[in-house]
């Protein structure tokens, strides 16, 4: 039994999600091989070989893999799949697009977006936008699994010595053509995928006061969120709304400022890894989900927070 993980990368470096997926994949089975499909991606192959959890790197190189198209990737994966019990990749837009195409051709019912490996055939996965967890057992001989990256630690990136082997390429798909990719222009990360989100609520008292939040977001390279109360009050536009009727976010760090923590808001952020609450009402429900709570007037706390951040030598981006 061996696991084949399909790496996501940009031909220069591994996407961090792949490292999280590697951790999950090696929990399924230690004999983990990584399939790297790309063009001129030797650097990526090398860094993958240094990941201790990876036992072998299979590199497929051709200019047709410069950009990622599921139609081009699928036959390559299918060819390799023969030797593996599990085909896995991360459940971001890359893996979500690719894996079902592979699964259907292997006649396998895919297990999407797992958050825990219970055994080689049994997994935990969220359903109903995380409002319920299902324990599911796959009966297919060959299993196709996608992995929610935020539920697993990133694998270590040094110390490994996996061999790198080359494998065959395949014909390019005729019916699909890559045209262009536009990275999001704004300097600020997207709310849905940002590593850090800082949100303001009704406690901000005005739209102008959101400047205090913007300053910190700039410093932390964070996305800006808001509670429905703040949106309703007109402090900020509704594309910033986090919650049941807004966006659901799962960042590494969520900072809730002047947000009382109505359950509708909690529904949109309670899966975040670390939650910080800054609120002057010590009884606010937000504190019941916060890892770190600071009971303070936000108009004093936020400038101070920025000041402290400025004192730090390094900030993770």
């Amino acid at each position: 039994m061996s696991v084949l993980l399909i790496a996501e990368h940009n031909n220069k470096e591994i996407k961090s999600f792949t490292l999280n997926a590697i951790t999950a994949a090696s929990q399924i089975d230690e004999d983990l091989h990584v399939l790297l499909i790309g063009h001129n991606a030797d650097e990526v192959a090398k860094s993958l070989s240094l990941v201790p959890n990876v036992k072998k790197v299979i590199q497929v190189d051709n200019e047709i893999y410069e950009n990622y198209l599921a139609e081009n990737f699928t036959p390559v994966v299918l060819k390799q799949a023969e030797n593996y019990s599990h085909i896995v990749c991360s459940a971001n837009t890359f893996g979500k697009n690719l894996m079902p195409r592979i699964a259907a051709l292997l006649d396998t019912s895919q297990v999407s977006d797992i958050i825990k490996v219970i055994s080689a055939d049994t997994f935990l996965r969220p359903i109903y936008a995380g409002n319920a967890f299902a324990t599911v057992k796959s009966s297919d001989a060959k299993k196709c699994v996608t992995i929610r990256p935020t539920s697993f630690e990133a694998a270590q990136t040094s110390g490994g010595t996996a061999e790198i082997i080359k494998a065959d390429t395949h014909e390019a798909a005729k019916n699909t053509k890559f045209i262009k990719k536009e990275e999001v222009k704004s300097d600020r990360p997207e709310l849905g995928t940002a590593r850090i989100v800082i949100s303001g609520g009704r406690g901000m008292q005005s739209g102008e006061n959101f400047k205090l939040i913007t300053d910190i977001a700039d410093k932390l390279n964070a996305a800006i969120g808001a509670s429905r109360a703040a949106v309703d009050a007109g402090y900020i536009t509704n594309d910033h709304q986090v919650g049941q009727t807004g966006k659901v976010v799962v960042p590494d760090l969520y900072i809730a400022v002047g947000i009382s923590g109505a359950i509708q808001h909690l529904a949109g952020m309670k899966e975040s890894k670390i939650i910080v609450a800054i609120n002057k009402d010590g009884e606010a429900p937000i504190f019941s989900v916060a890892d770190y709570g600071l009971e303070a007037d936000l108009f004093e706390a936020l400038p101070k927070f920025l000041e402290e951040l400025n004192k730090l030598n390094t900030i993770q981006k």
């Binding site: 409002n131 967890f133 324990t135 057992k137 916060a290 890892d291 770190y292 101070k304």
Partner: peptide, 21 residues
């Protein structure tokens, strides 16, 4: 795929209060 169990997600527990920024 056999659905063995559906359950509510575990409730998040409160962490600690810090005293200063």
């Amino acid at each position: 795929i056999e659905q063995l169990k559906v359950e509510e997600p575990p409730k998040r527990k409160a962490g600690i209060k810090v005293s200063s920024v």
